[in-house]
Measured scan of single mutants.
Amino acid sequence: MASQGTKRSYEQMETDGERQNATEIRASVGKMIDGIGRFYIQMCTELKLSDYEGRLIQNSLTIERMVLSAFDERRNKYLEEHPSAGKDPKKTGGPIYKRVDRKWMRELVLYDKEEIRRIWRQANNGDDATAGLTHMMIWHSNLNDTTYQRTRALVRTGMDPRMCSLMQGSTLPRRSGAAGAAVKGVGTMVMELIRMIKRGINDRNFWRGENGRKTRSAYERMCNILKGKFQTAAQRAMMDQVRESRNPGNAEIEDLIFLARSALILRGSVAHKSCLPACVYGPAVASGYDFEKEGYSLVGIDPFKLLQNSQVYSLIRPNENPAHKSQLVWMACNSAAFEDLRVLSFIRGTKVSPRGKLSTRGVQIASNENMDAMESSTLELRSRYWAIRTRSGGNTNQQRASAGQISVQPAFSVQRNLPFDKPTIMAAFTGNTEGRTSDMRAEIIRMMEGAKPEEMSFQGRGVFELSDERAANPIVPSFDMSNEGSYFFGDNAEEYDN
């Protein structure tokens, strides 16, 4: 993207840094990872977990959730003011799984939030270390993106479920800051804005008074975040219109849905970061690795190297396929839920299948599930090659597409044709070009129609051997075009429920 120079890199967003050079960025990201790792080690000690239990991804998720809940100030305040039966607002906890007599047992633990905050700050040299908290939120978000298709949420806001490739980060909490905003897809931002506008339509006082002023500035800020994701002048001009509207209503909703559809071809720039579970960072720190000293990046080879040398386990339900569970977590670790499966298959070195073909449910185990038949197995999170994460949407291309997802959002900077089903997408653009945004709409449609099938995206960008740390010898991959490109292809993934 041309304006790259004016933006802070995501590592800076990730670490609240002012302008830093590459070495400083690597050190501050490393410091953040160190903090998460030290916190995780301490929690495993508190909970008396064995090494194996500490490497269980379900335990990692519970521990991450506990610290996120302990620092969720708004919710904590709300819980104190609106006490609900049987919930102690000062405590947080969740299921911890232990191996007892050759069987997995679930144990519900409860801790004072104050105590968890103390352990977290102690692991982070006394700081609140917001960057580390956001990092864990993005890992949870990436896992949700890989596990669930947001059909219901899309339909509720009037969008087409086939636009799911635009929904990265749709389950990120509001408090995820600049680093969170960077990884949100165009569809996620559109959905947040539509929800806001709908509230304004239904509630006369939404934009009024002292609160209304705050609401208005939040609305304009979200519009600017979305505008910054678009790469064409016409899309940005249309966002200006939406932002400046005196009284946002149905016309703005129409414009936003139009823009979301246009992003299936004229893709937005959305950041991709490899955020790993805390149970990967903990053992690495415990083994003596100093992330701050060595430096770390979320968008280069580092996460690949770390996963190459990590042992992570997962509980497996009786009829689940461990290899499929591994694929789910591998995609989440690489922030690749909406990437082209052919690119992923090449990088991973084994075939990556669409969601609907995987015999696996989510990673988390519900409290009512029976533990008797639970097994555990090693997650295979290694890769054959590594590639640089991208934040450009890439230019655009036609490809055989599917009944489910009709476009992709690249996660890796790797040369390819970008699949999208042009006739299906263009069919949504018939007729409606009147109104105050008509010239911009016409211009956007013209650009979409001009998108050429034979153009290559990320020209000359390749993948790298894991021994090639400096990215000196790019390998331009070859793809098996007979395979499906979309992950949520004609899909039956479970729906995400809060």
Results as ranks from 00 to 15, higher is better:
396 T>E: 14
9 S>F: 04
14 E>Y: 09
70 A>Q: 03
143 L>R: 09
316 I>K: 10
110 L>S: 10
304 F>A: 05
469 E>D: 02
404 G>K: 04
78 Y>W: 01
61 L>G: 02
326 S>R: 07
226 L>V: 09
51 D>V: 00
350 T>R: 03
286 A>D: 05
14 E>W: 07
1 M>Y: 10
49 L>A: 02
180 G>Y: 10
8 R>E: 11
164 C>I: 00
91 K>E: 08
462 G>L: 14
469 E>S: 04
32 M>D: 09
492 N>F: 01
107 E>I: 10
58 Q>P: 06
220 E>A: 02
161 P>L: 12
245 S>Q: 05
492 N>L: 13
428 A>W: 08
395 N>Q: 13
73 E>H: 15
489 F>W: 10
271 A>E: 07
267 R>M: 12
240 D>Q: 15
387 A>C: 11
497 D>S: 15
227 K>P: 11
497 D>K: 02
349 G>C: 08
303 P>R: 03
133 L>I: 15
266 L>G: 07
309 N>W: 01
257 I>T: 14
308 Q>V: 00
22 A>H: 00
420 F>H: 00
17 G>Q: 02
205 N>K: 02
157 T>E: 08
445 I>R: 01
388 I>D: 07
40 Y>Q: 10
174 R>E: 10
81 E>W: 15
273 K>S: 09
132 G>R: 04
97 Y>M: 11
423 P>H: 05
131 A>R: 00
274 S>P: 14
406 I>M: 07
330 W>Y: 13
103 K>D: 03
214 K>Q: 14
23 T>P: 00
248 P>Q: 13
346 F>M: 06
372 D>R: 10
212 G>W: 08
434 E>P: 15
164 C>M: 06
261 R>K: 09
197 I>L: 15
131 A>Q: 15
153 A>E: 06
33 I>C: 02
210 E>Q: 04
82 H>C: 00
323 A>D: 14
431 G>F: 15
401 A>H: 12
462 G>K: 10
220 E>I: 03
245 S>L: 02
465 E>D: 05
156 R>W: 07
59 N>Y: 14
6 T>A: 14
432 N>E: 01
146 T>A: 14
345 S>M: 07
166 L>A: 15
255 D>E: 13
17 G>L: 02
212 G>Y: 03
309 N>P: 12
440 M>I: 06
163 M>V: 03
259 L>D: 10
72 D>H: 03
180 G>M: 10
363 V>F: 08
199 R>A: 14
419 P>C: 06
72 D>F: 03
45 T>F: 09
256 L>D: 14
88 D>A: 02
447 M>Y: 00
399 Q>Y: 00
212 G>N: 04
372 D>K: 06
486 S>A: 12
157 T>G: 14
44 C>H: 09
145 D>L: 10
371 M>N: 04
161 P>C: 06
451 A>Y: 03
168 Q>C: 04
185 G>W: 10
201 I>Q: 03
204 R>P: 13
254 E>D: 14
299 V>Q: 10
284 A>L: 01
6 T>Q: 08
12 Q>L: 01
243 R>M: 01
351 K>A: 05
214 K>G: 05
199 R>L: 12
431 G>C: 00
267 R>L: 08
174 R>M: 02
49 L>P: 09
281 Y>H: 02
165 S>M: 15
21 N>K: 05
461 R>Y: 12
89 P>R: 03
109 V>S: 01
270 V>G: 14
91 K>I: 06
409 Q>T: 06
422 K>T: 15
56 L>Y: 04
392 S>N: 08
200 G>T: 00
313 Y>K: 10
293 K>A: 03
138 I>Q: 07
53 E>H: 07
81 E>R: 00
387 A>Q: 08
169 G>T: 03
16 D>G: 14
492 N>S: 06
296 Y>P: 06
56 L>R: 05
40 Y>S: 03
218 A>E: 09
16 D>S: 02
275 C>Q: 10
